[in-house]
């Protein structure tokens, strides 16, 4: 879905430009400057729902995983899962504190960078703290990886982001016994123990994310991405990480947005598409 904003007839862009040039010769306003990584579209959309950026905020946490955690077991690696949870919670907490310190009520467009190395897990969050234009403060309200555009759209429909929620699980793929291997060789057949191990790991990651959502009092978690794959330092160890934004219905009921169909006349489309979200994340 894209949105079209016709800034309307009767505006004179050149007059605006002249005004802008004149402003450049004036003295800078002084005080503490706002910093933001939002685009102009995002800034405008955010403003249209009554919010403005305050400051770039961060949350970083590195957690250690002891040597041996990966080597001496099969099945789920509890140390890694708990290090992940600990690092994420700490990074999110720091981001909340930075947001509160900057006078923001929430953080939008949080970028999440996570790395799992042999002996540590790092979580690095970057986002823009925002506050209400009318400066009405209701304390800390949300952290969300939704873009400012998604935030504006969602709040129009009566929904509200609450927090980032994650769940991770790390498993060692079980080895096949010699007998299993021999029996399956040359056959086209399902491998139940492997299927089960991976299935359970995925369910485990989802279940943890869900629980985080429940704890936040969410009505739902949207934009869930399941990242999975072998770890760099060991092909037998697979990580499953589910990340999403917990949301709740703040208005009494869902407000329809009533979109219309449109045929674009652009040749080269350089617009936002939902599909691009999926592949890029």
């Amino acid at each position: 879905m894209t949105r079209h904003t016709d800034l309307g007839p009767g505006r004179d862009p050149q007059a605006g430009l002249h005004q802008a040039m004149a402003a450049l010769s004036a003295a800078p306003p002084g005080g503490r400057g706002v910093t933001s990584d939002l685009s102009i579209d995002e800034t405008l959309l955010l403003h249209s729902v009554g919010w403005e950026p305050v400051d770039l905020v961060f949350g970083v946490s590195w957690w250690s995983i002891p040597w041996g955690a990966w080597q001496w077991q099969t099945g789920e690696i509890a140390e890694a899962s708990s290090a992940f949870a600990g690092a994420f919670a700490e990074a999110a907490q720091q981001m909340r504190e930075e947001c509160a310190q900057a006078g923001g009520s929430g953080v939008v467009g949080v970028e999440i960078e996570m790395r799992v190395a042999a002996h540590h897990i790092s979580i690095e969050l970057t986002g823009t703290a925002v506050r209400r234009v009318d400066h009405h403060q209701a304390g800390f309200e949300f952290i969300s990886d939704l873009s400012a555009r998604d935030f504006a759209l969602l709040t129009r429909a009566g929904w509200w982001p609450l927090s980032l929620v994650v769940g991770a699980s790390f498993v060692v793929a079980p080895r096949r016994t010699a007998r299993q291997w021999a029996a399956q060789q040359g056959q086209n057949t399902e491998l139940p123990h492997l299927t089960e191990a991976l299935y359970l790991a995925r369910e485990g990651a989802m279940a943890r994310m869900q629980r985080a959502g429940s704890d936040a009092g969410a009505d739902g978690v949207i934009g869930v991405r399941l990242r999975e794959g072998p770890l760099g330092h060991s092909a037998r160890i697979m990580q499953f990480v589910a990340v999403g934004t917990a949301v709740h219905l703040a208005a009494g009921s869902h407000r329809p947005i009533a979109p219309t169909m449109a045929v674009p006349l652009d040749d080269a489309e350089r617009t936002f598409e939902a599909a691009s979200l999926r592949s890029s994340r």
């Binding site: 879905m1 939704l146 994310m209 949207i222 934009g223 939902a274 979200l277």
Partner: peptide, 13 residues
Amino acid sequence: MFTSDLSVNEFLL
């Protein structure tokens, strides 16, 4: 509650 990998756009639609 629900969980979903839909984007905000998709969810609303």
